[in-house]
Amino acid sequence: MALYAILQVSFFSTFTSCNGQNNSKKQKEKTIEVGVTVPSLDKTIWAIYQDKSTNYWFGSKNNGVFLYDGQQIKQITVKDGLVSDEIRGFQEDSEGNIFIETERGVSKFDGRTFKTLQIANPESPTNDWVLEQDDMWFRMGFNNNGPYRYDGKYLHFLKFPKSPQEDEFKSKNKNANFRHYGLYTIYKDHKGIMWFGTASLGVCRYDGKTISWHYEEQLQTTPEGGDFGTRAIFEDKEGKFWINNTRFRYNIKPNSTINLDYSKENGIGYINENNEMEFPFFHSMTEDNEGNLWMVTYDNGVWKYNGKELIHYPIKDGETDVLLFTIFKDNKGVLWLGSHNAGVYKFNGYSFDKMF
């Protein structure tokens, strides 16, 4: 899920120079005492976040959170109060509370202790969907048939309305052993509209009034024939959307029907070793401070799109290909990668270096 930080550079610089002593004091007051100091991160890092106090939070597949404060790494687990050690994402509210999403629930950290968010109801009817500016949205596992909305007090489970694609999918996949509405990703765009990427039924979009669906075979099926699901949704600086791969870019139109109204334009590809045009399928995407788009693939490194061409950055750990899960832009615009088999990498301006 994507969070945006608004950097007011000139104001911040003035404020810092005038209040350096106060800022230092606040930083000391925000020192996080929980967890156990460890020498390194877990190899499997699925989520990365930097909070307002500049701490880095790394979420592992099943070994809890790794917190880096610039000097040391601490591992935080269920022993410290987390609801689960299977970490899937981080968010932060206006008061600096950190929300840690896991497979079994959401933990809220106030700087000292963890609190597990309570679920208000087992399942809300379709007409209970609302969209408030300060709400947070969570997946809480892969097999749910909808997202959880947090209103500041409780989590509310919201069941997806029926997708136009459901009946056709069921008829073709009678023996499917997973939930086709299962959530791969949740994304909030610049207008505050919510996007949900499902396992098999494409994209669901909620604008506060209408829940709309969008499905295309080319978004779901890889050239090798596998079902990719909807793993990544991203809005670029022009307000246009990229979904799963670089074949097309989407212009979304206001609509009030169950089918998403849009137009699309050609995206960007590259010539592969067989002299064929190929369009990378990506797990995660972000935009750097210069407006370049960066995409991570699972087993084919990182791709940068500078508005003209795709530039490839292979990522290796020695001779081993690094299997990537996420890309994150920190408070200073530095890019970080989280991987399935080699921990974390950081961009040095030319290439990605393995960290810790």
Rank of each mutant, 00 (worst) to 15 (best):
Pro147Val: 11
Gly96Tyr: 09
Tyr150Ala: 07
Asn144His: 14
Asn121Leu: 15
Leu155Arg: 13
Gly89Ala: 12
Asp134Ala: 08
Leu158Met: 09
Phe90Cys: 08
Glu103Gln: 11
Asn175Arg: 09
Lys108Thr: 02
Gly146Asp: 09
Asp85Ile: 00
Lys159Pro: 04
Glu101His: 02
Gln118His: 00
Asn145Val: 10
Tyr150Lys: 03
Asn144Met: 12
Lys172Cys: 00
Glu168Ser: 10
Ala120Ile: 07
Gly111Phe: 04
Phe138Asp: 03
Gly111Leu: 09
Val130Lys: 13
Glu101Ala: 05
Ile119Gln: 10
Asp110Thr: 01
Asp151Thr: 00
Gly141Ile: 10
Trp137Phe: 07
Ser94Lys: 15
Asn121Ile: 14
Leu117Thr: 01
Ser124Cys: 08
Ile100Asn: 09
Gly146Gln: 07
His156Cys: 09
Phe142Gly: 07
Lys108Val: 02
Arg104Leu: 10
Phe90Gly: 07
Glu101Asp: 05
Glu123Lys: 15
Glu168Phe: 08
Ile98Ala: 02
Gly141Arg: 14
Leu82Gly: 03
Glu103Arg: 11
Phe99Arg: 12
Lys153Thr: 08
Gln118Asn: 00
Asn144Ile: 03
Met136Val: 06
Asp135Phe: 10
Phe90Tyr: 04
Met140Pro: 05
Asp110Pro: 00
Val130Tyr: 09
Glu132Leu: 04
Ser124Pro: 01
Phe138Ala: 08
Met136His: 04
Thr102Cys: 11
Asp167Trp: 00
Ile87Tyr: 00
Pro125Cys: 10
Ser107Thr: 06
His156Gly: 10
Leu131Val: 01
Gly152Lys: 02
Asn127Cys: 04
Ser171Met: 02
Arg139Ile: 13
Thr113Gln: 13
Arg149Pro: 06
Met136Thr: 05
Glu92Met: 04
Asp110Gln: 04
Phe157Cys: 11
Glu92Trp: 00
Pro161Ala: 06
His156Gln: 10
Arg149Met: 13
Glu168Arg: 06
Ser124Phe: 09
Pro164Lys: 03
Met140Thr: 11
Ala176Met: 10
Leu131His: 05
Phe157Ile: 10
Glu168Ile: 09
Tyr148Ser: 14
Asn175Val: 10
Met136Ala: 03
Phe90Asn: 01
Glu103His: 10
Ile100Gly: 04
Pro161Cys: 06
Pro125Trp: 14
Asn121Trp: 12
Phe157Thr: 12
Phe99Asp: 04
Leu158Arg: 06
Gly152Ser: 01
Leu155Trp: 07
Glu166Gly: 05
Asn175Cys: 07
